[in-house]
Design a binder for these strands. Structure first.
Length: 484
RNA sequence: GGGCCGUUAGCUCAGUUUGGCAGAGCACCUGAUUUUUAAUCCGGUGGCCGCAGGUUCGAAUCCUGCACGGCCCA
């Protein structure tokens, strides 16, 4: 056991004294009858009938007054004040209160009343220690601000920062509302492999692992796309999956190596249907969450009730570089990149250069909800060729405040073209290009025309809760290991 | 990958410019206090100043390297 000092030492001493006195610091259960919120909501009835209530939670504050004590306990839905009197709980029990600390889990039994200052309070007849806390909590007034401790010890953050609790409750609500939205449109939720023998569905570096029994290299999925499309081939006309994807890439304000994505595929639809669905989904989420469609993110406020702006990839980029991006050679693209201060590592492909140029020159400056649409064909092997322009694909990315929220296509369902596009990608030496033979085989059985959509749930939560860092919407974000 | 900033008590922070006893508030401990609520009042405890080197009579402070975190750029 590690050495303890100061406040921790004092708590260990109290623990020992409790045990000497035959008081279990870690009893088995407590029959709670009411939550803090229920006591407050039911106050009139409870106080009138002098109903005895049993509450439980973490003791988060104490105010000692000689022969009385006040304190608050916090449970998952709120706080309630406790009032302890020596003449109510008895001399011995009152003396034993000195062995309690803020941070301890306790159960309290008593009657409800309103104090002189008007606060609903429990006059405690019995106070039971439910779990001794051996470490002091951060100070209540300034809270816990050190972001590193907040992320590394999220449990402490959740105890002391109401804002952290608010964001994660909102996240749970958003996830639930996304399911509700899709379920109500007859989408079927499915589960596809996280461990995949070949990765695909995006251009990203995968995490590699090994399945010993098969002596086979495996990958954590970077996307669910190719499995979900197999289900459309199998006759499931509307499917979705809400799960973690993994990308072996950098860490920053909008990237975590494991992140949550919802992917939905709808047979007989195209990307314009997916645009409508995105608009409806965000309108629904904002309305359900905030009671209005106006959303504020940082300094920007916009109305998710309105249709999103449509911005053609090629037009927007052409305006910035003053040339037709489709007609520029590799060398000219590299020159343009250099001109605008782009630093692309390794040997950048044409597709990557176009993407980077667009990101820097256009996407980062987009504020209002926008569908960036009709990308150059080479940037994406899985989208259907544009019905009006053979050099483009029917694809769009929802972007808000420079943040890419997802990706959607009219899904390519021509098996011959699909195989060709994969092969071309590999021939061009695109990073992380793969050819999933079984997926190509599946397509040969016939996939209906399909609209597909992937949305980054973490970023959606950021947007809808006005949280600028992805680490504040992921309970346990990735950090570098501490070495000590 | 590059630049800038941060790391001091359990927590929130001063102190670094100009080297000279390690500080405050809250928390904690002792005492007073039977309707308080950032309770109040008396007295007290608590430090690997992120880590490792260097300069100096003397380093939290100056220099070098490293770690972690944040912001910006790419």
């Amino acid at each position: 056991m590690s050495e303890t000092h100061g406040q921790e030492q004092s708590r260990h001493e109290k623990l020992a004294k409790l045990q000497e006195q035959g008081i279990s610091p870690y009893p088995y259960r407590w029959d709670r009858t009411h939550t803090a919120a229920e006591v407050i909501a039911g106050f009139d009835e409870l106080s009138q009938a002098k109903t005895e209530v049993k509450v439980a939670g973490r003791l988060i504050s104490r105010r000692l007054h000689g022969k009385t004590q006040f304190g608050h306990i916090q449970d998952s839905g709120g706080e309630i004040q406790l009032y302890l009197r020596k003449d109510t709980i008895g001399d011995k029990a009152f003396d034993q209160l000195s062995l309690l600390d803020t941070g301890d889990m306790v159960g309290a039994r008593g009657e409800v009343f309103r104090t002189r200052m008007g606060e609903i309070t429990i006059l405690v007849k019995e106070l039971v220690l439910l779990a001794k806390s051996l470490r002091p909590l951060p100070e209540k007034f300034h809270g816990l601000k050190d972001v590193e401790i907040r992320y590394r010890q999220r449990y402490v953050d959740l105890i002391v920062n109401p804002d952290a609790r608010r964001v994660f409750l909102a996240r749970a609500r958003i996830v639930s509302l996304i399911r509700q939205f899709l379920d109500s449109r007859d989408f079927v939720e499915v589960e596809t492999p996280t461990l995949q023998p070949i990765y695909g569905g995006a251009a990203a570096e995968p995490f590699k692992t090994r399945y010993n029994v098969l002596n086979q290299e495996m990958f954590l999925r970077i996307s669910d796309e190719l499995y979900l499309k197999r289900l459309l081939i199998g006759g499931m006309e509307r499917v979705y999956e809400l799960c973690k994807d993994f990308r072996n890439e950098g860490l920053d304000r909008t990237h975590n190596p494991e992140f949550t994505q919802v992917e939905a595929y709808q047979a007989y639809a195209d990307y314009t249907d997916m645009m409508t669905m995105v608009e409806e989904l965000f309108r629904f989420l904002a309305q359900q969450l905030h009671g209005k469609t106006e959303v504020t993110f940082g300094n920007e406020t916009f109305d998710l009730g309105k249709p999103w702006r449509r911005l053609k990839f090629i037009d927007a980029l052409a305006e910035k570089i003053e040339a037709d991006p489709l007609k520029l050679s590799q060398e000219m693209l590299e020159k343009a990149g250099a001109k605008f201060g782009l630093q692309v590592t390794g040997q950048p492909s044409r597709a990557k250069l176009l993407d980077k140029l667009f990101e820097t020159l256009v996407q980062d400056h987009i504020v209002e909800p926008t569908f960036v649409m009709d990308h150059p064909k080479i940037t994406c092997p899985l989208a259907k060729t544009h019905r009006d322009n053979p050099d483009l694909v029917e694809r769009f990315e929802p972007v808000v405040c420079g943040m890419e929220l997802g990706n959607a296509f009219s899904e390519l369902n021509d098996p011959v073209e699909q195989r060709h596009r994969f092969e071309e990608q590999i021939k061009r030496n695109e990073e992380f290009a793969t050819l999933d033979q079984d997926f190509c085989t599946a397509l040969e059985y016939g996939m209906p025309p399909t609209g597909g959509l992937g949305l980054g749930v973490d970023r959606m939560v950021m947007l809808l809760t006005n949280t600028p860092s992805i680490r504040d919407v992921i309970l346990f974000p990735q950090l570098r290991p501490q070495n000590d």
